[in-house]
Amino acid sequence: MEEARGRVHKYGDNIDTDVIIPARYLNSSDPAELAAHCMVDIDPEFAGRVQQGDIIVGGENFGCGSSREHAPIAIKASGVSCVIAATFARIFYRNAINIGLPILESPEASRAIADGDEVEVDFQSGTIRDITTGEEFRAHPFPEFIRRIIDAGGLLASLREEA
């Protein structure tokens, strides 16, 4: 996990886990099946449009609502390489880290980046570059303990390393 590059799918504030993956699809935990319904209640064309490496940009409180890990799993399985938002709901934040979906908080990037822009992210430095507009933003790079989890390949792998 060093960098991501892709086209942006932009959404607003309070994108909740019910629109990321509605409960009616929770009778499965198969990533591919979840990806097929990702964002369906807010953006029915998302699953058909998303390309490997694409980036989701949201506003405030992205991922609020239920604790369903199916939400970051659906996003990751869609091929999304990174989610950038002004702020994240806390359970979504930990779930994303724990399953290895990179996420960055940057209110400035969240405001400035437009739907369809080409964006590049350097995770080492926390730099977000909007290639379409030439603008650059800086997010907090991951704190030490999160890097440890990610470097180990997720929470469970890090746990086994310690054991």
Binding site: S67, E69, P72, R94, N95, N98, I99, L156
Partner: peptide, 26 residues
């Protein structure tokens, strides 16, 4: 608890919070 409303038990004076499935597994 791997359910966001796990925060309910704070009513009893406990620290109680929702997590995801990976946290739960760990």
């Amino acid at each position: 608890g791997a359910d966001s409303h796990t925060c309910t038990y704070g009513a009893l004076g406990a620290f109680s919070t929702g997590v995801g499935s990976t946290d739960l597994c760990a």
